[in-house]
Design a binder for these strands. Structure first.
Length: 262
DNA sequence: TCTTTATGGTGAG
DNA sequence: TCACCCTAAAGAT
């Protein structure tokens, strides 16, 4: 479930479990055996999220750069649990063992590399240093469809395919609206809404976009949590139209033709 | 037991 | 624009 909220939650959980502790680092696959061997015994000083990138800082100056991609997972296990064959690396200390599998990126890097990664990213609404200005300027300076721009991590860092469908629905914006057709107030509201949804996602450790008064009580099933994403053919929750689906640049996007007119 | 799909991104053509 | 990478759950047979 890796959109920005997942990574920020992960950074927080890793800090809580492992900060200032000497880490036992183990690998099961050959491709990160050297990295794990080098990290083994180093003290974890911080864990930081920037968009969908995770940087785990060590006292030595080493950084572990992780990007979960589509299928990566970083799960909390017990040190006594036998890791799966797919284990890329385990970071363990005390009674916590964090197992990484399926990650698109798992590499030991230095601060210069971190800087070069961050330099390519747009502002992250979940970070203290995230500002809406550069986001608004970037969107307005391009005719590309807003849905395309919201997935472009150099425009805004942390939005994925679920949040983009949901935020466009909530804003009543058609996915193919050219960026330069949106005004600054609208984009500022979109930024704030995105930030609030992401924060809620960090808190819940899942994506729930429907407003509190609309949500059923008790346990919320995946299909109840959202307005548009993966709801093609189902009735819109705000009108009687049916949710539509199309593709933009090989990614599916769902929207309500009535609530989000062209 | 198989095939498909996925909340992502890169690099080749 | 497309093939491809990584893994695992869901869907099809």
């Amino acid at each position: 479930m890796p959109e920005g909220h997942t990574i920020h939650r992960l950074a927080r959980d890793l800090r809580n479990d492992l900060k200032d502790q000497a880490i036992e680092a183990t690998a099961r696959q050959a491709r990160f055996a050297d990295g794990a061997a080098r990290l083994d015994g180093e003290v974890l000083s911080d864990a930081e999220a920037y968009g969908k990138h995770l940087f785990v800082h060590f006292d030595s100056g080493d950084l572990l750069h992780v990007h979960l991609g589509l299928v990566g997972k970083f799960r909390r296990r017990s040190p006594s649990d036998d890791p799966s064959d797919a284990l890329r690396v385990r970071l363990a200390a005390g009674d916590a063992a964090w197992d990484l599998t399926g990650a698109m990126t798992c590499a030991l890097v230095d601060p210069d590399h971190r800087a070069s990664v961050v330099e390519k990213l747009g502002p992250d609404p979940l970070r203290r240093d995230g500002r809406s200005g550069p986001f608004i300027d970037a969107v307005q300076s391009s005719k590309r469809p807003v849905a395309l721009q919201l997935l472009d991590q150099s425009v805004i860092a942390g939005i994925g395919n679920v949040y983009r469908a949901e935020v466009l629905f909530l804003m009543g914006i058609h996915p193919k609206t050219p960026g330069d057709r949106l005004d600054a107030d609208q984009l500022d509201t979109l930024w704030t809404l995105t930030r609030d949804l992401l924060r809620d996602g960090v808190r819940r450790n899942r994506i729930v976009t429907r407003t509190k008064d609309e949500l059923p009580r008790g346990r919320i099933t995946p299909s109840e949590a959202l307005y548009a994403y993966k709801r093609a053919g189902m009735p819109c929750r705000r009108c009687e139209d049916k949710i539509a689906r199309t593709e933009i640049a090989n990614r599916k996007i769902w929207w309500c033709p009535t609530c989000q007119p062209a």
